[in-house]
């Protein structure tokens, strides 16, 4: 239970050397080990999507990823999303459309939404709803989130 391993991981552009329990998941490592509490844990079994972040530019569930699996990888958490080109517009759209209420799903939702937007996919409501179906939101009913993603894509194209 106490076995540990040394890892080197780039988190939001900063290189971190750490010794982690091999059983510790990435979410707990980021939250408890690095103080990056913006990554939220909702179900700890990979369904709700709250803990979604970017690992080497791909979305992953940080509750289903062990910290040791991130060795050598580049992690972008909500705290580091601002460095990506579409984030500012997406956050503005979320704010202006109230696409978040309690904010607990928001970090994971932004990561998934950015993945969709950065792929160059169109502002197709059905496709966006499909893409975001791995991220649960219990507050909004999703419509304003879809609106915000569409607005960001349309702004990107104009």
């Amino acid at each position: 239970m106490s076995q540990t391993q040394d890892i080197t991981v780039t988190i939001n552009g900063e290189t971190i050397h750490a010794t982690v329990p091999v059983r510790q998941n990435l979410a707990d490592f980021l939250r408890n080990g690095q103080g990056l509490t913006g990554t939220h844990v909702g179900c700890e079994h990979g369904v709700c999507g709250a803990c979604t972040l970017l690992m080497d530019d791909q979305t992953v569930r940080s509750c289903l990823t062990l910290a040791v699996q991130a060795d050598g990888a580049s992690i972008t958490t909500i705290e580091g999303l601002g460095a990506r080109p579409d984030t500012k517009a997406l956050k503005a759209a979320f704010t202006n459309r109230n696409a978040l209420q309690c904010g607990y799903c928001t970090p994971g939702m932004l990561a998934s939404a950015l993945e969709y937007i950065e792929s160059g996919a169109p502002a197709d409501r059905t496709a966006i709803r499909e893409h975001l179906s791995g991220n649960y939101c219990r507050c909004t009913g999703y419509q304003s989130i879809v609106d915000a993603v569409c607005e960001t894509i349309e702004g990107r194209q104009s």
Partner: peptide, 21 residues
């Protein structure tokens, strides 16, 4: 009027109980 609280939550700067150490 957009909510002022949105800014914190969109930056991962919420203050949820489990964030407290």
């Amino acid at each position: 009027v957009p909510r002022a609280d949105a800014a914190r939550l969109l930056e991962g700067r919420g203050r949820f109980v489990d964030d407290l150490q």
